[in-house]
Design a binder for these strands. Structure first.
Lengths: 359, 359
DNA sequence: CTGAAAGCGCTTACAG
DNA sequence: CTGAAAGCGCTTACAG
């Protein structure tokens, strides 16, 4: 790697082109306002030197960093990945995402907020609406747009784009109750002082509330292990659940990953899904769509959350929005009934019951 | 949101504490070199004003941005997420990752490299080793450590942490051949001028080469659709494969996601896995570990790639490494034989063959 | 259409 | 242990 003695600066370009740095700056920012031959000389110098403008200096000078901070619970959940990609796409190439992850830890969130704010992002997008006091203070004092996502806080710190996790849980319960199940369980993660999946907890609470309102017991709403919830989590939680309630008829998992794990645990034990136990998840993960039987779920458009957030931010940052956007945008959720909650008579033959080569 | 009239600067803190900005700067950078009572007054002023240092200014001044750029194909693959998290953890809180994704597009990679370099990262980590000429030039001229990951380029642009995808493909073929299969297929994605998964292609090529060396035909090595490969991809590719070769005995998919999709397609068609068709994937995704039967795979430690890269960078950036680290670190791959390639007599009863409630 | 001056908010490099 | 001066590489705000 042939290291240059020093990276070329705008000054180097301007000297080579025989103009001032201001002219170089203009050519790079808006070529149309510079005379054509001047512009050509500058571009030629830029090429020749392989000049890459220094946005650190540009940001300090213009007070525009073109950064948008994004704080997510994890980088390994494709739903949050979709949100990040949706946000990046909506924002376009003029903005750079500054992504951090918390692993559901409030302390880590606080550290991250401080670290990201030091980079002077023009806006900050953060999953969730429950923060430490210090985090809330920093966010409020930042004097930039803050968007809380994946929830529907009342009221939001500033703006919010998400949905009600409580309603999502309720919708799942309604679906299972409507199918005639009575001995209904749910599996999620524990909450402790520092690590907590408040959104999953919201779903669990909505689910439990709907159970009680229907006159059913919520004593099978289990919280096991720590977020993030995994495929393994579902398997273990399902095993624990069967230990405790061998007669369980239906299970709601706070995530499709967990639901899939639960279904695999049933398969290993020879328990028919949905024949003996119905299973429902949340998030509409690809695995749930593709597996056999496919997993019934509460769908949320993760990418749309990112896209709407991006558009909202663009309006706010460019001051383009004439009409003041609402404080909270709700992308809604929808129940998607699939194989794992099919009634016996509805259930098509699933692979487990077919043998031999078809096609 | 009560917007401050103006964010407090170090100047504001220094005035309130009755010291120079240099002293404030020292307290924040290394409190131990400042007298205790001075330090206390400064900290108190920092607290009172809610001062958050401006790293944009600090970076320009110190010529240390504490940024590490990371370019990944997608944000929605948990394997790359693991690499990102491993890198972030190894680097520690002193560095901020600047993450971008390309969707396997060379043109997007070029744009991203340019955009990230403008932020003056202290190092750049990039998935893959095949870049456009312009990208290579920018990378070489950047005069910062560049680490190519998830491959084993000969030679790397600068450094590399990865493994041989060709060998990974060969290992998969050897495993399937060793099991006695003869009519062996593979499924991956197409390559076109702009979008291409060169790592998946490497696996396919290694796989095909091993087939030929064993005297077998490689005419069932199929490339369908574009990267990123999905669960759906596997299902569709499997359907196409069965159309073309109903007598296929074993299939290698370039990703566990694809392998899972292929297996589900088999299940929908009543084709027994592994009884009639053996399936093998790559990447050791959680879904493959958890499903029934579990998916045989070529495992690569995605998180370790990130961690090793982080440690390498830390040594390089802090100049701590006395011994010059090797140009390329190979994390290796390993074949993990599981249910989907079990021989009939080895195969335990899998869920599909058990009925009724167990336990 | 182009440029000289000033300054963004810090840290480096001295000096004491 | 502390501070005054200079400067990082750009863009803003004038001026012509």
């Amino acid at each position: 790697m042939a290291a240059q003695p020093r990276k070329p600066t705008m000054r180097d370009v301007s000297r080579l082109a025989g103009v001032s740095t201001m002219t170089v700056s203009r050519v790079l920012a808006d070529p149309s306002i510079v005379a054509e031959d001047t512009r050509a000389r500058v571009m030629q110098a830029v090429e020749q030197l392989g000049y890459v403008p220094d946005l650190v200096a540009g940001s300090l000078s213009s007070r525009r960093t073109r950064f948008v901070g994004l704080i997510l619970p994890t980088l390994t959940n494709s739903n949050f990945g979709d949100t990040a990609q949706g946000l990046a796409e909506a924002l376009g190439p003029a903005y750079q995402l500054l992504i951090g992850y918390t692993l559901y830890r409030a302390s880590e969130e606080e550290r991250l907020v401080r670290a990201l704010l030091a980079r002077r992002p023009e806006a900050l997008v953060i999953a969730g609406s429950i923060h430490t006091a210090a985090t809330r203070r920093m966010l409020s004092n930042a004097a930039i747009p803050i968007v809380e996502i994946w929830e529907r806080p009342e009221p939001p710190l500033d703006r919010a784009v998400g949905f009600s996790n409580v309603e999502a849980g309720r919708a799942a319960a309604r679906h299972l109750i409507g199918l005639g199940h009575r001995r209904i369980a749910a599996i999620g993660s524990e909450l402790d002082d520092d690590v907590a999946d408040h959104r999953g907890e919201g779903r669990l609470q909505g689910f439990a509330a709907a159970l009680r309102e229907a006159g059913l017991s919520d004593d099978l709403v289990l919280r096991r292990g720590h977020a993030p919830v995994s495929f393994e989590h579902g398997a273990e939680a399902m095993a624990a659940l069967l230990e405790r309630a061998p007669d369980v008829e239906a299970v709601f998992a706070v995530s499709d990953a967990s639901a899939f794990g639960a279904m695999m645990e049933c398969r290993r034990r020879g328990i028919d899904v949905p024949g003996t136990v119905a299973i429902m998840g949340f998030g509409d993960f690809e695995v749930g769509r593709q597996c056999e039987p496919a997993i019934s779920t509460v769908r949320v458009d993760a990418k749309a959350i990112g896209e709407k957030t991006g558009r909202l931010l663009l309006e706010t940052l460019t001051g383009a929005g004439t009409a003041r956007a609402p404080l909270t945008e709700d992308v809604g959720v929808s129940v998607v009934a699939r194989g794992t909650t099919a009634r016996r008579d509805e259930a098509g033959p699933h692979g487990a019951e077919r043998k031999g080569r078809g096609s």
